[in-house]
Amino acid sequence: TETRTFTDEREARRFEQEARDNGKDVQVRESNGKFEVRVK
């Protein structure tokens, strides 16, 4: 599991989409204006 934290939602979404395109299981959590993207 890899976790990346972004402050920019667009960057978080781009990373999320890229991971999904690669067939990964992705979860995005938002807290305090930060976006935590977990990739399995």
Rank of each mutant, 00 (worst) to 15 (best):
T1P: 09
T1Q: 10
T1W: 15
T1M: 10
T1A: 11
T1E: 13
T1S: 11
T1F: 14
T1L: 10
E2A: 08
E2C: 15
E2V: 14
E2P: 07
E2K: 08
E2N: 09
E2I: 15
E2M: 12
E2H: 11
E2Q: 12
E2Y: 10
T3R: 05
T3F: 08
T3C: 15
T3I: 14
T3K: 09
T3D: 08
T3M: 08
T3V: 14
T3E: 09
R4K: 11
R4W: 11
R4V: 12
R4H: 15
R4S: 07
R4L: 12
R4Q: 09
R4A: 08
T5F: 15
T5P: 03
T5V: 15
T5A: 09
T5N: 10
T5I: 15
T5G: 07
T5H: 13
T5S: 12
T5D: 08
F6G: 06
F6H: 04
F6E: 04
F6I: 05
F6Q: 05
F6W: 01
T7L: 12
T7W: 13
T7S: 11
T7M: 09
T7A: 10
T7R: 05
T7D: 15
T7G: 10
T7E: 14
T7K: 06
D8Q: 00
D8A: 00
D8T: 04
D8Y: 00
D8H: 00
D8S: 04
D8K: 00
D8L: 00
D8E: 07
D8R: 00
E9T: 01
E9L: 07
E9V: 06
E9P: 07
E9H: 04
E9G: 04
E9K: 04
E9N: 02
R10F: 14
R10I: 14
R10L: 14
R10K: 14
R10Q: 14
E11A: 08
E11V: 03
E11S: 07
E11I: 03
E11G: 02
E11P: 01
E11W: 00
E11Q: 06
A12S: 03
A12G: 02
A12H: 00
A12T: 02
A12M: 07
A12F: 03
A12W: 00
A12V: 03
R13M: 08
R13P: 03
R13I: 08
R13E: 07
R13V: 06
R13G: 05
R13D: 04
R13L: 09
R13F: 03
R13H: 08
R14A: 13
R14E: 13
R14G: 07
R14C: 11
R14N: 10
R14F: 08
R14T: 07
R14V: 09
R14D: 09
F15V: 05
F15S: 03
F15Q: 03
F15K: 03
F15P: 02
F15C: 10
F15L: 05
F15G: 02
F15E: 03
F15I: 04
F15R: 02
E16N: 00
E16T: 03
E16C: 12
E16W: 07
E16K: 00
E16L: 06
E16F: 04
E16A: 15
E16I: 14
Q17E: 09
Q17P: 01
Q17N: 07
Q17T: 07
Q17I: 06
Q17M: 07
Q17D: 07
Q17A: 08
Q17H: 07
Q17F: 03
Q17V: 05
E18K: 08
E18Y: 08
E18P: 00
E18S: 08
E18M: 10
E18A: 10
E18F: 08
E18D: 09
E18H: 09
E18I: 09
E18T: 08
E18V: 08
E18Q: 10
A19Q: 13
A19Y: 04
A19T: 04
A19D: 01
A19V: 06
A19L: 10
R20T: 05
R20I: 10
R20K: 10
R20M: 08
R20H: 06
R20Y: 05
R20P: 01
R20G: 03
R20L: 10
R20A: 05
D21Q: 13
D21A: 14
D21W: 08
D21F: 09
D21S: 12
D21H: 10
D21Y: 07
D21R: 14
D21L: 14
N22E: 12
N22Y: 08
N22D: 10
N22I: 09
N22R: 13
N22P: 02
N22A: 15
N22S: 13
N22K: 13
G23D: 04
G23T: 01
G23S: 03
G23R: 04
G23E: 03
G23K: 05
G23A: 04
G23W: 04
G23M: 05
G23V: 02
G23P: 01
G23Q: 04
G23I: 02
G23L: 04
K24W: 15
K24Q: 11
K24N: 10
K24T: 04
K24E: 06
K24F: 15
K24M: 14
K24G: 07
K24V: 07
D25F: 11
D25H: 12
D25K: 08
D25Q: 12
D25A: 08
D25R: 09
D25I: 13
D25G: 05
D25S: 12
D25N: 09
V26M: 02
V26D: 01
V26G: 01
V26S: 03
V26I: 04
V26F: 02
V26R: 01
Q27Y: 12
Q27V: 13
Q27K: 07
Q27A: 10
Q27I: 13
Q27T: 13
Q27N: 10
Q27S: 13
Q27H: 11
V28H: 03
V28S: 04
V28Y: 10
V28T: 08
V28R: 04
V28D: 01
V28N: 01
V28I: 12
V28W: 12
V28M: 11
V28P: 01
V28L: 12
R29L: 14
R29Y: 13
R29V: 15
R29Q: 10
R29F: 15
R29D: 08
R29I: 15
E30F: 11
E30M: 12
E30I: 14
E30A: 10
E30N: 08
E30R: 09
E30L: 10
E30P: 06
S31L: 14
S31E: 13
S31Y: 12
S31F: 13
S31Q: 11
S31G: 07
S31A: 12
S31I: 15
S31H: 14
N32L: 06
N32A: 05
N32K: 08
N32Y: 04
N32V: 00
N32S: 05
N32W: 00
G33W: 00
G33Q: 02
G33R: 01
G33N: 05
G33L: 01
G33S: 02
K34Q: 13
K34N: 10
K34E: 10
K34A: 10
K34V: 15
K34D: 05
K34H: 12
K34T: 11
K34I: 15
F35N: 02
F35V: 05
F35L: 05
F35T: 04
F35A: 01
F35S: 02
F35Y: 11
F35H: 03
F35K: 02
F35Q: 02
F35I: 11
E36H: 07
E36A: 02
E36F: 06
E36M: 05
E36S: 01
E36Y: 07
E36I: 13
V37F: 00
V37Y: 00
V37C: 03
V37P: 01
V37I: 07
V37K: 01
V37E: 02
V37N: 01
V37S: 01
V37M: 00
V37T: 02
R38M: 14
R38D: 09
R38T: 15
R38G: 06
R38Q: 13
R38K: 12
R38H: 12
R38L: 14
R38P: 02
R38N: 09
R38A: 10
R38W: 09
R38V: 15
V39K: 00
V39A: 05
V39R: 00
V39Q: 03
V39D: 03
V39N: 01
V39I: 11
V39E: 03
V39T: 09
V39S: 04
K40Q: 12
K40S: 15
K40E: 11
K40D: 11
K40G: 13
K40T: 15
K40A: 13
K40M: 13
K40F: 09
K40W: 08
K40H: 11
K40P: 05
